[in-house]
Nucleic acid binder design. Structure first.
Lengths: 150, 150
DNA sequence: CTACTTGCAAATGCTTTGCAGGAGA
DNA sequence: TCTCCTGCAAAGCATTTGCAAGTAG
C-alpha cells in the first residue's frame, strides 16, 4: 500500500514532517502511524483505541491532531459522523472511497491511470469557470457493501 | 435550481414524503425547506439559525433530522466538520461540490450530461469488482475558492 | 536544562432527548 | 380527541484542554 520501500522510510519522512512543526516522533505517535500504515482502510478513533489499548483516548486524539497538522494524515468523514483517518496520499497511492451507508464502513479503491486522467480533466471542467483552484479531489461512491446486501 | 415549476409543487412533494413516515408538514419545517430551497449552496445549522432566528436550535435539529429521515434532505460534510444540509437531489439538479479548504465554503457545480455519463461509467468501474451496490456518488473538489486566493 | 509529551480528570460544545403544553386533522 | 409537534431545560457524547509529571535532546 505504501509508496515507500520500507517502513523505515515511512517513519523517516513522518519524522521530518513532524520536525517542521517542532514536534517529536514519539512511541505513541509511531504506534498510530504504524497502525494506519498497516490498515487497508481508514480507521476511526474507536478502531484505533481497540487496536492500541495502551494509548489513552486523549493522547490518541492529540496524536491524530498533531499528525494531521504535520500533513501526515488525512481526515475523512463517512456517512456516520465518526471521523476516520488514513495516511496522507503522499504516503499512499491515490485512491477513492466506497462508503457503505448501512454499516459505515469505508473501502479503498485504487483507480487506473486512465481513470484518473479522465477525472482530472473533469475536475478542470467543473472548476475553471468558478476561478476555483483545485488542489485535490475525492470521488466517493455511496451505496451498500457486499456484506450489507442480504 | 429546483426541478419544480413552483414552490407549491415543492411543498406538495415534501408533504407527501413526510406523510409516508406519519409526519406533518408544519410551519417550522416549511420554513427550513424554503430556506434550503432558496439557497444555492448547502447550509449549516448555524446558517439556518441565523436566517430563521425564531426557530429554536433543538427544533431546527429535529426538523432537519425528520426531513432527512423522510428523504427530503441530504446531509453533507465539508472539510470543516460542520454538517450541512441541502434539498435531496430529487428536488435539485444533480450536482457536485467545490470545497474551499480556506474558508469552508461549499460551492455547487452542475455537471453536463456527458460529464455525468462518464462519471457513471467510472463509478461502475470502481465498484463492480467489490460487489458494492452503488446508489449515488459525490465528486468533491478540494481547493481554494476565488476569494481565498489573494 | 528547556521544550515538547502524555495521562488524568475536568471542561467544551454540538447534538439529542424528556417532558409538558400546543397544534393539526 | 388522538397523535404529532415544539420549546425549554437537562442530558449525552465525541472531542478538547488544563495541569503536573515524564521524557527527549
Amino acid at each position: 500500500m505504501q509508496t515507500f520501500d520500507s517502513v523505515e522510510d515511512l517513519h523517516e519522512f513522518v519524522e521530518v514532517l513532524l520536525r517542521r512543526i517542532d514536534q517529536r516522533y514519539t512511541a505513541g505517535r509511531r504506534a498510530v502511524v504504524e497502525l494506519l500504515a498497516s490498515s487497508d482502510h481508514p480507521l476511526s478513533i474507536s478502531d484505533i483505541e481497540i487496536r492500541t489499548p495502551t494509548i489513552p483516548r486523549s493522547s490518541a486524539y492529540r496524536h491524530l491532531s498533531d499528525l494531521h497538522r504535520a500533513g501526515v494524515l488525512r481526515r475523512i468523514t463517512a456517512s456516520d459522523e465518526f471521523a476516520r483517518f488514513e495516511l496522507a496520499e503522499d504516503f499512499l497511492h491515490h485512491h477513492h472511497h466506497l462508503l457503505c451507508s448501512s454499516c459505515g464502513r469505508v473501502i479503498d479503491v485504487t483507480p487506473t491511470a486512465s481513470f484518473e486522467r479522465t477525472v482530472a480533466r473533469m475536475v478542470h471542467e467543473l472548476t475553471d469557470e468558478q476561478g476555483f483552484l483545485a488542489t485535490s479531489h475525492a470521488l466517493d461512491v455511496i451505496g451498500h457493501c457486499a456484506s450489507c446486501q442480504n
